[in-house]
Design a protein around this nucleic acid. Structure first.
Length: 216
DNA sequence: GCCCAGGTGTTTC
DNA sequence: GAAACACATGGG
C-alpha cells in the first residue's frame, strides 16, 4: 500500500470510529486565535476557563486586546497557566494581526505563515493552527500527538522535526482544508482516548492492524 | 504527591 | 546545534 493510501485509510478508520470532531471549538475567529495561544502545553479545560474570563470581561476582540494592558490580560487568562508569558504573546499577536489585517485574505499560506512566525511566542504549531482553523487555509497541523502516533506506526521517526512530519502529510494527501481540519482533530481525539502516553488501549485501537503496538 | 497537558524562547554546553 | 531550562494552572 502506498503512503498516500495508508494515510487515507487511517483517516477513514478514525472518522468511521469517532465521527466529525467539529473543530476548532470556538465561535469567532479571534476566539480560535486566542485559544491557539492559550493551549500551548496546556489542557483545553483550563483554556476554556481563561476564554470564559475574556468573554465575561468583554475584551475578546483584536482591538480591545490591543488596548488592554498586558497585566490585565494576564490576570484574566490565569487559569490557562504561563499567564505572564501568554499575555505578552497575545499582545504581540494582536499587534501583528492589526498590522496585516487588510491583507490577510489575499495572502497565500506561505506568506501568512511567515508573518505569524515572525511574532515572538508564535511557533509552527500555533501558526499552523491559526492558518487552518481561524483563516481556513490549507496547512497540516502537527503536534506531539501526531508525532507519537505516527512514529508508533513507523511512518515518521521520533527524530523527525516539525517540517519533515508536516511534509509527510502534505505531500501525500490532497491539499484540502476540510480534510486537514478533520484529520488533526481526529488525531488529537485518538491520542487522548486510545493511544495514551503511558498505557495505550491497543486492544480496542481501530488502527491496530498497522500499528506496532497493536501487532501481537 | 506525582504526572501530564492540542509549545515556545532563551540559555548553555 | 542540541539539550536543558523557564514558564504555571488544574485535572486525573
Amino acid at each position: 500500500m502506498s503512503l498516500s493510501s495508508l494515510l487515507l485509510w487511517i483517516f477513514n478508520r478514525f472518522f468511521s470510529a469517532y465521527g466529525p470532531q467539529h473543530w476548532w471549538p470556538g465561535d469567532t475567529q479571534i476566539e480560535i486565535i486566542v485559544g491557539a495561544v492559550l493551549t500551548q502545553n496546556t489542557s483545553w479545560i483550563n483554556v476554556e476557563k481563561a476564554i470564559a474570563n475574556l468573554k465575561r470581561a468583554g475584551v475578546l476582540s483584536v482591538e480591545l486586546l490591543y488596548q488592554l494592558p498586558v497585566e490585565d490580560i494576564a490576570s484574566l487568562i490565569r487559569p490557562a497557566g504561563y499567564y505572564n508569558v501568554k499575555a505578552r504573546r497575545l499582545k504581540n499577536l494582536v499587534s501583528k494581526l492589526a498590522d496585516i489585517q487588510t491583507d490577510i485574505e489575499d495572502m497565500c499560506v506561505e506568506e501568512l505563515r511567515v508573518e505569524l512566525l515572525s511574532v515572538n511566542g508564535i511557533g509552527k504549531e500555533t501558526a499552523d493552527s491559526i492558518i487552518l482553523y481561524a483563516f481556513g487555509k490549507p496547512i497540516f497541523v502537527v503536534d506531539g500527538y501526531t508525532k507519537r502516533i505516527f512514529s508508533r506506526l513507523g511512518i515518521v521517526s521520533t527524530r523527525d522535526n516539525y517540517d519533515v512530519v508536516q511534509d509527510v502529510f502534505m505531500s501525500n494527501l490532497p491539499r484540502d482544508v476540510a480534510l486537514y481540519n478533520e484529520y488533526h482533530a481526529l488525531v488529537v481525539h485518538h491520542a487522548k482516548n486510545v493511544c495514551l502516553k503511558r498505557n495505550p488501549k491497543c486492544n480496542t485501537c481501530v488502527i491496530r492492524e498497522v500499528c506496532k503496538h497493536g501487532k501481537v
